[in-house]
């Protein structure tokens, strides 16, 4: 199991991390709005995350920390 930490208020809701996850574990939270007025990315099933960091590597704003 891996642990993801998002700097949620820096997220621009671009969705590039969502497409990058090979396990399709990420989504933009339609029910949340951050300080930048975007729907921030969130993980749906952290237990299924393998910690590959593909999402973090694709994030243009470098806001995802991955621990394993």
């Amino acid at each position: 199991m891996a642990k993801l930490t998002f700097k949620t208020d820096y997220c621009k809701g671009c969705g590039l991390c969502v497409d990058a996850c090979p396990k399709k574990l990420l989504q933009l939270a339609k029910d949340k709005i951050n300080k930048k007025r975007h729907h921030p990315a969130e993980i749906t099933d952290e237990a299924a995350c393998v910690g590959c960091a593909s999402c973090a590597m694709m994030c243009p704003d470098c806001i995802i920390k991955v621990e394993r």
């Binding site: 820096y10 621009k12 590039l16 910690g51 960091a53 243009p60 704003d61 470098c62 920390k65 991955v66």
Partner: peptide
């Protein structure tokens, strides 16, 4: 164990780039 985090050579200032602009990825590299 941390496998990915913002590199030390970047500070904590949020990028002003548009959502999804790849300038940010290149800065990080």
């Amino acid at each position: 164990m941390v496998v990915f985090d913002k590199p030390h050579a970047l500070n904590d200032m949020p990028f002003h780039y548009c959502p999804g602009c790849t300038h940010g990825i290149i800065h990080r590299l």
